[in-house]
Design a protein around this nucleic acid. Structure first.
Lengths: 237, 237
DNA sequence: CCCTCATAAATGTCAGACAATTAATGCGAA
DNA sequence: TTCGCATTAATTGTCTGACATTTATGAGGG
């Protein structure tokens, strides 16, 4: 095997090959956001393959939301501007898949989630703005409804923590973390909260907002540890 | 736009539709790892579309590494076991793409990286084992070579921190974090380390290993803050 | 027993056709 | 002139049928 270039084995999957070539063009900047790729016919001629093969390659790229296609006279395939929302959705989906398919236990997932979140406590305390506090208080109000289903309670919890990580003001951080938290949601959804558990969570949430308002990151960290322990207790009951 | 159900508009892209259907079958457990999908002909008949369309759908799934295909008599499309390695590679790739395409500045990326890492300091201190320390010390030795290129220095740094997050013993955590760190690597690669900078980083690394060995998570956190500041200084010089 | 060859099943690839969509063009009427 | 509308061209979406390639299996002969 002297050939360890870009093509491990050329014998199969032309469409994967073509997709990879175009992918590299996007990665290295030959193609930038909103550029139009050549038409399918042109691509097929340029790469010496049939249009069907080119189409399969383009579908691969579309599945990674690297390109979008438009029909009609001025249509074609265009390089997608990779938004944080795209990446977020993709990551959350990957995380969900991984967690459900690998039977990750809830303790491990909880531990991971709170460990990650803890990391942004100080940054959030430093950069938080009023609307973050408002969003979090709004979710706390929702959480106080006793009729709320466990699932809705959990969804509100996710929104609360999403606002918390957004408060860091760092898009990379909030994107990564939000995806992680959402990826773990299916597991959290399996928890059943007794009213006592909910009360405990809610008072911790309130204390967290207060700490965030007062910009005391260290206190926020401690509260997060409590919340982790509380959640773990709920999970194991 | 009252319709926000699963199907935004059914009028186009049958292949995306089919892909989504199969995807759901995998997600909800109708299809589990290593299950064989029906053959392309059977699928085309079952969904009432041509084989070409089915193939485009399958390529979409393959691009997300949800399935793999094998040729020959016993061939077909098989549901992939979603390994942590797969998810890791996918996430790192997404992160790289996002960061290069959005011109995330290095300060933001650094801040995110160290914030995330900080979150697992205590857990790592609690769960670390001998081989984690060994791996980290090995990387430190590499980093001491003055002839090391900036790129190799950076790669060793990534390996060092990878070992650090592995020390948490939490696969979800180390998967998420490792992907984040690697995703940021292209940016870190643009840094030029003067010898003085390298020395500073190396002594911090050594102190970190010591703190980890002594299982003092709080000290590890402080050292990480130093390392963040040091890296930011390097970045801005 | 082992080697070879034929066979069947499946994916990979191709060529050509038609349908559907969409912007631009041209033209006629008010 | 300007508005409205049909025409046209370009492009993706889909279908059909064919052939190439790969791979397991089984039959037959040495």
């Amino acid at each position: 095997m002297s050939d360890n270039s870009v093509s491990p084995q050329k014998h199969t999957d032309l469409s994967a090959d073509i997709a990879e070539r175009i992918r590299q063009d996007i990665l290295n900047g030959s193609l930038v956001a909103d550029d139009r790729l050549p038409s399918e016919s042109e691509l097929s001629e340029a790469h010496g393959v049939s249009r069907a093969t080119v189409r399969e390659a383009l579908k691969r790229l579309a599945a990674q939301s690297l390109i979008r296609t438009k029909r009609g006279a001025t249509g074609g395939a265009f390089v997608n501007r990779q938004t944080f929302e795209d990446a977020y959705a993709q990551m959350a989906s990957t995380a969900k898949l991984l967690i459900t398919l690998n039977e990750v236990d809830i303790a491990t997932a909880c531990q991971a989630r709170f460990a990650l979140e803890r990391g942004c406590a100080r940054l959030a305390a430093k950069n938080r703005q009023e609307h973050h506090l408002d969003a979090m208080r709004h979710e706390i109000d929702r959480q106080k409804y006793p009729e709320l289903s466990d699932e809705d309670f959990c969804a509100s919890d996710v929104a609360f923590h999403r606002a918390l990580v957004d408060a860091t003001g760092n898009p990379v951080l909030s994107w990564q973390l939000a995806a992680a938290v959402e990826g773990i949601e299916p597991l959290m959804n399996m928890l059943t909260y007794r009213q006592r558990d909910r009360d405990a969570v809610i008072s911790l949430h309130e204390a967290m907002v207060d700490a965030l308002e007062a910009r005391v990151g260290s206190r926020l960290e401690i509260l997060m540890d409590y919340l982790r322990d509380q959640t773990l207790r709920t999970a194991l009951s």
